[in-house]
Amino acid sequence: MRITIIGAGVAGLVTAVELAGRGARIEIVERAERLGTLACAWFAGGMLAPWCEQATAEPQVAVLGAAAIAWWQQHFEGTVCRGTLVVAAGRDVGELGLFGRRTERFESVDARQIGALEPELAGRFQQGLFFPEEAHLDPRRALQALAARLNAIGVSIRYGVDADAARLDADQVIDCRGIAARDTLKDLRGVRGEMIMVRAPEIQLSRTLRLLHPRFGVYVVPRGEGIFMLGGTLLENDSHGPVSVRSAMDILNAAYALHPAFAEAEILELGVGVRPAFPDNLPRVFRHGRTLHVNGLYRHGFLLAPAVARQAAQILFPNTSQASSCISS
């Protein structure tokens, strides 16, 4: 079977990896000239945090996302399994109680334990929640690693191709275009997220941190070599425009509250991604004519891509077992 996947974002690449393991001949077409530049995944946090996400997401997200950590460990050696630490400042500790009531698989930690986990935060927070099984990765390196892996097994990615699904010469088309697929998926909407990349060589953090606040929460994901990704905005619009001053202030203030040394950090990049979402904020995999749509991963691209890719593979190859679904590494 000849399959063309439209879109080399996280949904497209992970789906390609899943299908390649089942014997399909795959080609990927991508409208950007280079990997990632038009993909919202490029601006993602890269948190593999199925249990933290329970605080706001439908239960299905944790169910679908639970297998993601193992998948990424298997396919990307840069996957860091050091858990997530959730903290709140003095007057906001009530937020931890609420967060804890809605999530699972965590340990409550006190000031001493927080200091043991992240020495930089010693004495700064009195209470926290530690989710030891969660993980994170650098989305850009992860996408590059998947692209290289696909290249190595003969899956080509053609860049600069704005494909029309109806005209592609293939037995099967998989539409992984994200928000660009709104031209055919009318109930898809864009949800904007903004991120700031900073270099703060003075700060040593080894795992994802989330600071809870009634208004301005933030997450900090270490990228290594003193670089941190700060994120947190979730805006109901599909503007790709630059980061607003208000959002930047909110994110940077929150990071500063987490650790004052962020005040000395250098801002390397301000980025915006528009995440594709259906009204229930849950992903969908469904066939429409010759096209299989894989879309609506919302803010859970890296967390849910392995599960939706597997669903796509099971629709196209109903007789292959899950055991053969992974390409050998």
């Binding site: 898809l188 864009g190 904007r192 109901e236 619009n237 599909d238 503007s239 425009g241």
Partner: peptide, 11 residues
């Protein structure tokens, strides 16, 4: 939620 112009139209 606006993001300027009509970019919040989806919501």
């Amino acid at each position: 939620e606006g993001g300027g112009q009509r970019s919040g139209q989806g919501f």
